[in-house]
């Protein structure tokens, strides 16, 4: 456990030191929140949603922030590989599983912090948190998204030689995962082909879980969301650990 903590600690130090990264990675979510939220608030009306479209997408934007930060944290392993630091970690008498878990927890922590920053900013544009329990539910779902997608990033990084493929992954994997989740639109009433894609997207369950926590309503049963997302997290961590074990430096 002390090794996992050591790796986690390094991640935290690096995160807290990179002020520009913290602020920079808030840019896009805040932009989405303001432009889409205020832009569409008056034209989109969602039945059964008390807080308007802005309230509806806040959980989606929080998920987005957690998603992007966590994938990015996982993929950072490639930098460690290129800058040589990974060798220092891998030659130590510690297991690769410990290293991978430390990285996963580190990435999850930073991404949850990023999500919470968005959440706090949302309080200023009309989000009302009514109960501690609701906040905790949202927190648990953020954590699951953070864990699963950091592990996902690590899995990708273990297979990639350098950062050249990064753009590809962003455009063809991460954006679709975000776009197809129910972050920006309600699932009910989608054409059935799109709905099936949405239901296959693990992020959908994270968004819906956070939505349940913050707004009190969701279109997918929160317990079901929790089970699916937990299953996905376990799967990703196992896959990430497996691929990381075979990483070559």
């Amino acid at each position: 456990m002390d090794i996992v903590y050591t790796i986690w600690l390094r991640n935290m130090k690096r995160y807290l030191r990179s002020k520009s990264r913290i602020v920079g990675s808030l840019g896009m979510p805040v932009f989405f929140l303001l432009v889409l939220g205020f832009g569409l608030n008056s034209v989109v009306s969602l039945p059964g949603m008390g807080q308007g479209y802005i309230g509806f997408i806040i959980p989606g934007i929080i998920s987005m922030s957690v998603l992007f930060t966590s994938v990015f944290s996982g993929i950072q392993i490639i930098w460690d590989k290129q800058f040589g630091f990974l060798k220092e970690t891998l030659v130590a008498p510690v297991s690769r599983l410990e290293i991978m878990l430390g990285q996963t927890f580190g990435g999850a922590t930073t991404s949850v912090i990023q999500g919470i920053i968005i959440l706090v900013l949302s309080l200023f544009i009309g989000l009302n948190i009514t109960s501690i329990a609701g906040f905790l539910v949202a927190f648990v779902f953020m954590l699951l998204i953070g864990l699963s997608f950091t592990a996902f990033g690590i899995a990708i990084a273990s297979k990639m030689e350098d950062m050249h493929g990064f753009q590809l992954i962003m455009n063809f994997v991460i954006f679709p995962i975000f776009g197809l989740s129910g972050a920006l639109f309600p699932i009910d009433g989608l054409p059935s082909w799109l709905k099936s894609l949405t239901m296959l997207d693990p992020l959908t369950y994270g968004v819906e879980g956070i939505r349940y926590g913050l707004l009190g309503t969701s279109q997918i049963n929160p317990f079901f969301s929790f089970v699916v997302l937990t299953g996905f997290t376990v799967f990703m961590v196992v896959l990430g650990a497996y691929l990381f074990r075979k990483i070559n430096v």
């Binding site: 390094r10 130090k13 690096r14 990179s18 800058f83 040589g84 630091f85 060798k87 220092e88």
Partner: peptide, 13 residues
């Protein structure tokens, strides 16, 4: 103990 040919420090630390 090992000192690798290429640098292996964390520059942000």
């Amino acid at each position: 103990g090992i000192v690798f040919q290429d640098q292996s420090l964390d520059e942000e630390l």
